[in-house]
Amino acid sequence: MTAGNNGTNPPEGDDPFGYLYRSENGAPSAQGQQANSPRRSYNEVRAVGDRRYGQQQRPQPDQSPSPYYAAPETQPGGGQGGSGGPGRRAAGRANQEPARRNGLLIGALAVVGAVILGVGAAFAFSDSDDDKAGADPGASESADAGQDDAPDPDDGPPEEDEERPLPQENGSSLRLENGPVVAGDVEGSRAKDGSYIHGFKEGSAALWQPEIEEDGEYTVFVGYTVPGKDMSLQVSANDASPYSARFSNYAGAEEGDWAKGWTQTFAWVELKKGTNDIRIACGDKAEQCSVAMDRIWLEKGHVKK
């Protein structure tokens, strides 16, 4: 029911707003000619947007819908959405997903490779440190200990563990007194230069001064030759009484054969640490002093050979 009308039919035919289309003289307008058409029920169900007023006509199926009223899905490419729509974003994410997965895979492989390289480098440096240490855990300690045990230059030369060889001398190097001379015409001398001393007579002697490292008993050995006869000379050490040493014909040479009589004899003596005086002299019997000596040396203890 509209204002001013209590009847059942609305003014201006079907359209309750038909009076809005009347001309000034009261005749219906062209737009209001629809009023003469049969009335349709107000309760008739119509599709949304189907009703049109005036001269607007329902678009035919072959007509393209207006882009102003069409849904985005009806536009060309609408299934994919607009430039910023959900459809394009979904497609973009679909296209970007494989690239993203590839990037993540490459990154993971790079991390694993870096870890492997780091572990390998750690082992390499560890082995290098073990090679610079000599592969011996006590090497550095031994080196330090060696530095601590190094001799101090102010302490002098280190003592030798092995005993030095006892002195020995050629007869020609002895100090000769009152008559003996150096010669070398008799063959068989065991001196380095083949020489010897001879010419002992009463009151003559040969002096030897060996230097030793400790006091004790020693044996003086003398190399000599005789002309096929037994001889005898006096041997003394330091202030001790002379000892009569036998210079016998142990080689069994013929009388007068000096070259065949080379042999050796000995005398037991007591010596002191340091320099000692060993004297070999002719006694009061000159006929017992025909001896030629080539060498003299010491042995520790009282020995015979």
Rank of each mutant, 00 (worst) to 15 (best):
Q63T: 11
G87C: 04
L174F: 02
Q75N: 05
C289P: 04
V115Y: 10
T74C: 00
N238S: 12
D148W: 13
V111R: 04
Q80H: 08
P137R: 02
P242N: 05
Y224M: 01
A259I: 00
Q288K: 07
Q57S: 13
G7N: 07
G203F: 05
S189V: 02
E177H: 11
P242Q: 04
Y21I: 12
N9S: 15
R93V: 15
G184R: 15
L109W: 11
P151Q: 07
A267G: 13
A121R: 13
G301F: 04
K273R: 10
G199Y: 02
S140I: 08
D127V: 13
K285T: 09
D185W: 03
D14A: 10
P28A: 14
S37I: 03
E169M: 10
S172P: 01
K260G: 04
D193C: 02
G188C: 03
S241E: 09
W258V: 00
D215A: 05
I278L: 15
S41R: 05
P165T: 09
I116L: 12
S29W: 12
Q80M: 09
S241C: 07
R52E: 14
A3H: 14
Y250C: 04
S248I: 08
S66R: 01
N95H: 15
A133W: 03
E213K: 15
R190I: 07
S66A: 07
N102Q: 11
M293K: 00
D144A: 13
R190A: 13
D284P: 13
N238T: 04
M1Y: 15
P59A: 11
G18C: 13
K305G: 10
Y250Q: 15
Q80C: 06
P98R: 08
D284H: 12
G82F: 00
L117H: 05
S83D: 04
G179Y: 04
G199D: 03
G7S: 13
P76L: 07
F266E: 08
S241P: 14
Q34G: 10
T265I: 06
L207E: 10
D284W: 06
E159K: 13
G103P: 02
P76C: 03
A206K: 02
L207T: 08
L105R: 13
C289R: 03
Y42V: 05
P210A: 07
A251R: 07
